[in-house]
């Protein structure tokens, strides 16, 4: 084979390989395109548009008029909005903190040797299976003045509580349901985290005679830290989104006691048709979620390296 022929075939092969690489890249672009289109049109664009609309007055009938930051200025002076933000805050704090503790405790419990483990675990998990709307309907029934919740409380000598009809109790009723439904969900995540901890750490600790509390404190907790942080972030975002349960159970009342932010946004936009105002509220909600999302992306990228 001559020297010139060999270089020719080499460059031909190179061209061929380049062609293959280009073909593969084209294929890769083609198969991600539908996903990209959906994500850009229905997720990314609306996110940007939310900012745009928030600077306008828009009632779906007349064309939007630019009013600058008027919506935001009105919002921070609107007692209803401040009340709603406060309700969301209380909901997030008091539905999330107990969930973290309970979910972790249950995960530790189910990570042990237990007889009839599958039955107990499935029973504990069941709240996750119930659809949100069903959840709201069934609990409304259970919270009835003469319902099953008050009946059970009466066994312990507690007087009937006017759960959903009192502005003092309604939010706590909604929070309890949130805890009931979220705890098993995060228990599953904690369990996955616990099972990833190598058994040999515990074996070594047992040889050293460490008590189970010390094992939990010095092995489980530190090694579970990434999972714990993730559960915290996820649960807060999910709690900020709560909507179906307060809408169906109380409609935001009594006396605005359960009007969480998403519910207020929905009502402002689709009952009072103040699109700009609703969008401005979304921006506030977005800011709250964003703080946690950035936090989470940082967690993701740390794991990614």
């Amino acid at each position: 084979m001559s020297a010139s022929g060999s270089t020719q075939s080499r460059s031909l092969r190179k061209l061929f390989r380049l062609n293959i690489a280009a073909k593969q890249a084209l294929f890769a672009y083609a198969i991600i395109l539908p996903t990209l289109a959906v994500i850009v049109i229905f997720r990314f664009l609306p996110m940007l548009q939310a900012f745009y609309i928030s600077l306008h007055e828009y009632d779906l009938i007349r064309p939007p008029t630019f009013i600058g930051f008027r919506n935001f200025i009105d919002l921070v002076q609107d007692p209803l909005f401040l009340q709603s933000a406060w309700v969301s805050f209380i909901y997030v704090v008091f539905s999330c903190v107990p969930v973290w503790v309970l979910a972790l405790a249950l995960a530790v419990l189910f990570n042990r040797e237990i007889r009839a483990k599958n039955f107990f675990r499935s029973a504990t998990f069941m709240p996750v299976v119930m659809p949100a709307v069903v959840n709201a309907v069934v609990w409304t029934f259970m919270y009835h003045q003469d319902g099953v919740v008050n009946t059970i409380l009466a066994w312990f000598g507690i007087d009937p509580i006017p759960w959903l009809r009192s502005s003092k109790w309604a939010l706590w009723a909604v929070i309890l349901i949130g805890i009931w439904r979220a705890t098993p969900y995060y228990m599953v995540i904690f369990l996955a985290g616990l099972q990833a901890i190598p058994q040999r750490y515990y074996e070594a600790a047992q040889i050293d005679g460490a008590s189970s509390w010390n094992q939990f404190r010095h092995i489980t907790l530190p090694l579970l830290k990434p999972t714990t942080l993730l559960v915290m972030v996820m649960s807060v975002i999910v709690a900020l989104k709560v909507f179906a349960v307060p809408l169906i159970m109380t409609g935001g009342g009594p006396a605005d006691a359960t009007r969480v932010l998403p519910l207020f946004i929905y009502q402002t936009a689709f009952e009072f048709f103040k699109m700009g105002r609703a969008a401005a509220m979304s921006v506030f909600l977005f800011a709250a979620v964003m703080i946690f999302t950035i936090f989470q992306i940082r967690l993701f990228s740390r794991g990614e390296d």
Binding site: R43, Y52, I53, A269, M275, S282, F300
Partner: peptide, 18 residues
Amino acid sequence: LSTMMLPLEVTMVPLFLI
């Protein structure tokens, strides 16, 4: 990835318009 945690509750107004 950045849209993963974006709740519909934040974008519902513009999404409806689109």
